[in-house]
Design a protein around this nucleic acid. Structure first.
Lengths: 139, 139
DNA sequence: TATTGTTATACTCTATAACTATA
DNA sequence: TATAGTTATAGAGTATAACAATA
């Protein structure tokens, strides 16, 4: 059996997941990155500021701007000026945004189920465990 | 403990690996994708054609073109017309290309070691096993 | 002076569609 | 007509640097 490195495997598997997810999202009109932002906003208990969303997504604030531009144009998110600090923008999910989040969550679940179908529930737990350990590592 | 989904973890960890790898490659003047192509060429026992490289990298042939353009411009790969079939291009690693492959392999090894440092050797094997099973799954 | 967000710009990775040269 | 590769174009996901508004 060909020896494939961990790095290479990680690259391949994560790309496959992205593909499966992206294809399901296309008819819904959002990209995986936008869906990911939607999710972060939906999971927060209150409106996030741009910097906070950047933090949650682990990208730089500048990179959040085009994501929110697209979501706002699609009517899924509203930008509101933070009355407490007029430099800040509060990102508010619209009803349509919340609904899109539900639908994209289902798409992600399906894509994951599809990809990880060869693994048993125990193996999936193991995988989550291992990746979680790597992810929690501070750099 | 916050429940993070497998899909999200995969995304995060694979991005972290890419970052670590990319940062080490920057001073060497190649991108991760170029290094990956270099690796595929070095691991083949004979010159590959564009289509074959595309296959090895699991991307469409069109996407290989700019990768090889860059590698050729950097003097790491030579395009040669296949005498047996003049439609085909044979991709030949230059000496510089072979050397760059060695260096980038080391960079990848370091990046992987760095990222997976929290895991024991056994856990890394487990992870490789699990991802390998997912990867081998035909879709 | 520090923080928040944006304008401007760019790079990497990848895709689809249409074309050219060759088989 | 089928295959190999490229030209043309595009979109997703990021990044750095410089700047404006506000604190």
């Amino acid at each position: 059996m060909e020896e494939v490195e961990l790095s290479e495997l990680l690259h391949r598997v994560s790309r496959r997941l992205r593909h499966g997810y992206a294809h399901r999202l296309i008819p819904m009109g959002v990209s995986p990155g936008q869906a990911r932002a939607l999710r972060a906003l939906a999971e927060a208990d209150r409106p996030l500021r741009m910097v906070q969303l950047a933090d949650a997504l682990r990208i730089v604030p500048r990179s959040v701007t085009p994501v929110i531009d697209a979501l706002e144009e699609a009517g899924l998110v509203r930008r509101e000026v933070d009355p407490a600090n007029r430099r800040s923008t509060l990102l508010v999910l619209t009803d349509a945004g919340r609904e899109m989040h539900e639908r994209s969550r289902e798409a992600r679940r399906e894509a994951g189920q599809d990809l990880f179908a060869v693994l048993t529930a125990d193996q999936r737990d193991q995988l989550r465990e291992l990746l979680g350990a790597v992810d929690r590592q501070v750099h």
